[in-house]
Design a protein around this nucleic acid. Sequence first.
DNA 1: TAGATTGTTAATCGATTAACAATC
DNA 2: TAGATTGTTAATCGATTAACAATC
Lengths: 209, 209
Amino acid sequence: MSKSSVSSSVIKRLPRYYRFLGDLCRKGYTRISSRELSEKMGFTASQIRQDLNCFGGFGQQGYGYNVKELHKAIGDILGVNAENKLIMIGAGNLGSAIASHIDFRKKGFKLIGIFDSDPEKCGQEIAGVKVTDVAEIRRFCVANKPICAVLCIPKNSAQYVANSLVDLGVKAFWNFSHYDLKMEHESIIVENVHLGDSLMTLAYGLNNQ
Amino acid sequence: MSKSSVSSSVIKRLPRYYRFLGDLCRKGYTRISSRELSEKMGFTASQIRQDLNCFGGFGQQGYGYNVKELHKAIGDILGVNAENKLIMIGAGNLGSAIASHIDFRKKGFKLIGIFDSDPEKCGQEIAGVKVTDVAEIRRFCVANKPICAVLCIPKNSAQYVANSLVDLGVKAFWNFSHYDLKMEHESIIVENVHLGDSLMTLAYGLNNQ
DNA sequence: TAGATTGTTAATCGATTAACAATC
DNA sequence: TAGATTGTTAATCGATTAACAATC
């Protein structure tokens, strides 16, 4: 299945559907129409039906969607039940907060290692994972084959570290380093998170009415 | 000036331009053409010129753009030199990491207060700001008139807290609470950050080639 | 002046919305 | 069966790209 043909606009909405449907499940909804869902989510009903039909016909005419089934289906599309092995590089403020704050298992990942260059941090435990010296990364990757890395390191080392990790088999990066990673192989997946950019759009909003 | 007519696609690219131009300044560039910038940023030259001309003609035919001037101009459009007073609600893992990690002053904000309901945390200092009991928020807001709030609180209290803060004059929210805020007054600016959603798009990528 | 590169208009492309026949 | 609501095609809208005349 060439799901890669699905546009990124649609893909970025999937986690949102997943979240809302999870909430609806918990609230005891068993069925919902695209119109009802559109009112709750602020999308149009048309868009919801259009989006879902990129992946198959989950609804039933005259009835709507089964909330639980749809939630499960979207979870499967996203791959939230996978256990993609993930390591984190950089256990500073942000790194350790993310390690503790994100429920990796519920998002399709398993945190198997945290690395830092600061000897003070090595040996400490964060989110149940021991912090290891970065010097050990190569050995660790060869032995444990992580597929994804969270980068919480300064921007000047981000590209170098990412390149090294690609050579060690890492296929995806969740990058918090204030630097836009550019990867050679286009099969490498990168999600650059720029919290500062997000904040600046707020400044823009306040600055311009 | 009805800058509000500028599309959000453009606005979301502004911080990126700002970052790249800052880097170019530091690297000693004095001028740059839209073509050169397009190669560095991965946009098209056309888009760059189109984007910039939403705000005015910053370039010069036959020459290109003055890096320093353009950087300054975009900074002014974003309002990075403002000192929008900002408070943070919730000093847990994520809240305190963000307070320490983000350079608010460089983004147009000034962190003037941090609030938490945990008595353990009250009195502690984070990023040079003392953590205060949430019970004090009303008094604090009346006295100090913050215009923006960062929400690092559980999702079930997010909407209630946001509504209360609106009544106290807060105009903008940077919301990390795993819940999509819906505000009555459409003048209230909300930036919902969903780190989990961002991570799930990575899971999707790994799950689908 | 000639060359380069902008600002801007026009063309294209993609994403969103509307409409409706199919069908539960 | 009649009513509701989907899946899907067609229409609209907006954003991106291309082209080029203006001009430094």
